[in-house]
Write a protein that binds this DNA or RNA. Structure first.
Lengths: 335, 335
DNA sequence: CCATTTTACGCAATCGTTTGCGTAAATTAA
DNA sequence: TTAATTTACGCAAACGATTGCGTAAAATGG
């Protein structure tokens, strides 16, 4: 009973001696089709396993009922959880979610954004790579009403939708906790300078130090882009020259690099140096000695971002009101 | 200079007093368009930032130049690496990769497959959830020539493309290693029964035991589906009744569940029980005591699977020749 | 110089849907 | 009974791109 190629409306219309438009309306349960005809068409369509061609539908209706999400890396648990939150909301509203990863390459990111626009995604969730200005450029040039919600790494202006966690507070709390553990020479392994999360986390870190009467030593602050190499160089240099007694790491990857670097040190330093870092890795709590974790409410961030996006997609001509949601992160695994 | 809505061919044709077809051909560098006209059209198109509408192109050409990959969970490093391998190959050939996750739900999987078919993906990479027969059913019913390559969890028949790692050998090696460490009561935490990877890994495990003159104790073999609950129950039961001196875990998740359960045991068992498990988690080597890891060549698996898929997509009328690739996995972190 | 080919473009169909409009037949209203 | 309305369907345009075919004008051949 399975056909060689997908059956289309005209196949049904021929088989039933009806016009294509009647078949279409019957399947869409239009009121201007007789009940009897509807039954015939619908049951026949079910028998031959008719599925509307989404490409054709999209072309006609100018929407695709899918949203795209662009993240740096799906293997990063933080982003994976965000994706799950997005899927949760989107699927409930009949939208599919298409996932892209940039691997922190601005070039890839730009290509993906262009492609998303050309494929007419109904909306975009974006956590931009480093180069904010270039991304802005592209967002302008696609010349479409592509609704966007930024999350995690967000632009500084207020004319866009944003969902973030309270990076300042989280960094403040984490650093304060390290200070309470008696640490004074706290190094900060920061992400790329210039992006929102780096700025806010650095601010929280600095505030906590000053708050405790510790001066901020620029030598202990190291920016790493997303190459492992940079992080390792920074870590080696820090150990050689400054021997921090604690590390505050600004990302999943940096947390684990720190941890590994510290574990390789000779005792007793290896077990004395404390590390706290941003990570949503589900098994981080298994590490001994502990890696204290700043855990972001990633699933909720995804849910909220998706809700904001779908709202702006459906609320057509309503006047735009930009949202800015900030959620708290929690410090875990501090015994 | 940026327009309100995306510019289309007819916009260009009006602006330049040319027909739509001429514009189209000029942009596609057709030989039947004069060089001068081409230059004019192309430069104008560049100026107004023209991008072909991929929906329209897809409808016309009946291909979309994207492939879909369906995995259980993107946060699982094994699958994330596979995705990266797929992207590597696909992007090089001008294809985009769309990622879907099933969360190990057959229902979700089926919906996704249907959607992929309706959206006319050019091909599909599939690691099916448990219910093989239901999935087969759907694959038939979509009635399209949708090329498929299976990976990791694959059907048993030979009339499809498959990419796997040598699960039997890997399980054999891992179990043998545990035996060489002096372990005799080796529990096997298996995935869902009935799927290819579970069967092969169980076979390798059993063969290694028999090979060492150890009889296979069915009580030490536990199948867990993908709920954490089942795994925990199995682990607790094993500890209460049989107290294995080693665990062989069949998946990323099971490996970490095992590890966590064992770490919670009172000493000296906690540090005596050895664990070896399938995992591609990048930081597994940081755990102390060690978690020995069977690492699959996930990136290569993804690359090969994508190559197979793109081959069958492009080689149109060639007679189908089904491929079955098996790659070796390596045992790491065994000091 | 005329016939033939080539060049360079336009017309219109097509991909599979949806939908505005037109219209017979059936129903209702007056 | 006739006019007005409703019901139930078909025709054809549209979405934005590609492409087979037709055809003037230009280039070439003998």
């Amino acid at each position: 009973m399975d056909q060689e190629r997908p059956v289309k409306l005209s196949d049904i219309s021929k088989a039933l001696n009806l016009s294509v438009s009647t078949v279409s309306r019957a399947l869409n349960d239009s009121h201007e089709i007789g009940e009897e005809t509807k039954r015939i068409v619908q049951s026949y369509a079910a028998r031959v396993n008719y599925r509307p061609n989404l490409i054709a539908q999209s072309l006609k209706e100018m929407n695709t009922r899918y949203i795209a999400i662009i993240v740096p890396e799906i293997s990063n648990s933080f982003f994976a959880e965000i994706v799950n939150g997005v899927e949760f909301v989107a699927n409930n509203q009949g939208y599919h979610v298409v996932i892209y990863q940039t691997h922190d390459s601005t070039e890839r990111e730009i290509n993906i954004i262009r492609d998303v626009a050309r494929r007419k995604a109904d909306g975009l969730l974006l956590s931009p790579s480093t180069n904010q200005t270039e991304v802005n450029e592209v967002m302008k040039s696609i010349g479409a009403k592509l609704p966007v919600v930024y999350f995690d790494r967000v632009p500084s202006d207020n004319y866009c939708h944003k969902v973030v966690c309270d990076n300042y507070q989280a960094a403040f709390d984490a650093t304060t906790w390290l200070i309470k553990q008696g640490k004074r020479r706290i190094a900060h392994m920061a992400g790329p300078s210039g992006i929102s999360i780096s700025i806010e986390r650095l601010a929280g870190y600095s505030a906590a130090l000053l708050n405790a009467g510790i001066s901020v030593d620029p030598n202990l602050i190291r920016y790493s882009n997303f190459l492992a190499r940079e992080a390792w160089d920074n870590l080696r240099d820090l150990e050689e020259k400054y021997q921090p007694d604690a590390y505050f790491a600004s990302s999943d990857r940096l947390s684990f690099y720190c941890y590994e670097a510290v574990q390789k040190l000779p005792e007793p330093r290896a077990s004395e140096v404390k590390i706290v870092g941003f990570t949503n890795a589900p098994f981080a709590h298994l590490l001994r000695p502990k890696l204290s974790a700043i855990v972001q409410p990633a699933f909720d961030m995804g849910k909220i971002a998706a809700e904001m996006l779908l709202n702006t997609i459906t609320k057509k001509n309503k006047d735009i009101e930009y949202g800015f949601i900030k959620l708290p992160a929690v410090l875990k695994n501090t015994e």
